[in-house]
């Protein structure tokens, strides 16, 4: 398998854990993996990206423009910011809930609808509402694992449910495990429904 997966969002949304789980799962499935993260000052509320490159011919840690097979966007405007990295026939999973930057001051900013419409008009796309998906778990912090479920269920990730669940067990601290597994299952179901619809 050769697959370039980009995860984008805003610092603090948990994109790093999502990319770690994907990378570890792909390694367990026997593939060569390289990945890269945004770390440091930019993590504090800035735009963040993770690049996960599965397969033998990735020399560098960063996915080139137009190179990603799958873009998992934790935030609508970040999906737009990083859309250029997607292959023309690539797939996007995008959260419809915006994160408003403090630079907006007292103006309301975008509700994310225009961004979602733009992404939909440009590529194959599955939208996910993190508030709705994570409501049963009490916090949107579980979105990172839930959306991994969606990616796996949609068939676009190319990794099995079992392998990913094994990694969640290994990586996530025990006290959060149950909720994370439930979040993954909920996300998976959503992805699967979309997969069946295709």
């Amino acid at each position: 398998m050769k697959k370039d997966i980009m995860i984008c969002g805003v610092g603090g949304q948990g994109t790093v854990l999502a990319s770690k789980i994907i990378a570890a799962s792909a390694m367990d499935a026997g593939f060569t993996v390289h990945s890269a993260e945004t770390i440091g000052m930019a993590q504090r509320g800035g735009p963040v990206t993770s690049h996960v490159r599965i397969g033998d011919d990735a020399f560098s840690p960063l996915i080139p423009v137009g190179g990603a097979d799958l873009l998992i966007a934790f935030e609508p405007s970040e999906a737009v910011r990083n859309l250029k990295y997607l292959k023309k026939d690539g797939f996007v999973i995008v959260n419809t809930v915006p994160v408003k930057p403090t630079s907006l001051g007292s103006s309301e900013g975008s509700n994310g609808k225009a961004e979602i419409e733009f992404v939909k008009s440009k590529c194959r796309c599955l939208t996910v509402n993190s508030d709705e998906l994570c409501a049963p778990f009490g916090s949107s912090k579980f979105f990172n694992v839930a959306v991994l479920g969606t990616a796996a269920g949609s068939g676009e990730l190319g990794l099995s449910k079992e392998i990913i669940c094994d990694e969640i067990v290994k990586i996530v601290p025990e006290r959060f495990r149950e909720k994370n597994m439930a979040a993954f299952a909920a996300g998976y179901k959503l992805g699967e429904e979309n997969n069946a619809n295709q």
Binding site: V10, G11, M41, A42, Q43, R44, G45, G46, P47, V65, G66, S77, E78, V80, R81, L83, K84, Y85, L86, K87, K88, K100, P101, S103, L104, G109, S110, A114, E115, F118, K122, C123
Partner: peptide, 15 residues
Amino acid sequence: SIDCSGAPQPPARPP
């Protein structure tokens, strides 16, 4: 890559 002209301008997110 995908033609992104006409995209809504993403907001600045200084740390």
